[in-house]
Amino acid sequence: MESGFGPKIVWDSGWKVPGLEFLGNFQITETVTVTWLIMIGLIVFSMLSTRKLEKIPKKLQLVLEILVGSINNLTAQTMGEDKKSFAPYMGTILLFLAIANLSGLIGLRPPTADVNTTIGLAMMTFTLIHFNGVRKKGIGRYLKEFTEPFIPMLPLNIIGELATPISLGFRLFGNIIGGLIIMNLIYSALAGLSTALFGPSALPIFQAGLPAVLHVYFDLFAGVLQSFIFTMLTMVYISMKMD
């Protein structure tokens, strides 16, 4: 069976990691390269744009100030004024996810269409939830909350906590991979249509223009919405555990 819509392998080292032979060869997939591209882009952009900050802002600085200010506002509104210090992390995942989801528009494969990326981010959220829960309340009160409202609820509460990263990760992954697969199917259907009408050597002219409407929905709308929702849910879960 062919591998379907998984990420392409761009580099195969040919050797196995010692101790982890069952995983197969050590490979670099498209996901990793696109993630690094986004990371480099974000780092370079933030370094260049904050180099010459002025008292009276110019165009670029004004845009940045609005961006940072709105992320600060969103965090303060959702998590409460006392947890405003989470704003840098929330802003980072919001920007990273938004750019990652939108990278499908310029022909790259979105890194979030790989379950490893999304589950990794969801596990970061999971760690933050419980680390901050213990830090804020102390280990005793934190553990006691698992037995509320009464002791027999303990296994259910634990399953509920473990389900959080799974639902977070798979929600993002499912949305992006669903859009990716539908777009792929539509592109191959349009290519098939032009082949059927004008013969096998014809240019796939239907692929230009027609799928743009669907790109607006699947990449622009769903991508931005899902990155926003991932960030919002992270904030809500963390502040719920801390209160």
Binding site: F170, G174, N175, L233
Partner: peptide, 17 residues
């Protein structure tokens, strides 16, 4: 509303997976 709709979507995404 968007937040609630996203949470409601989870079960459908499980089916898709």
């Amino acid at each position: 509303m968007l937040l609630g709709a996203a949470v409601a979507e989870t079960t459908g995404i499980y089916g898709l997976i």
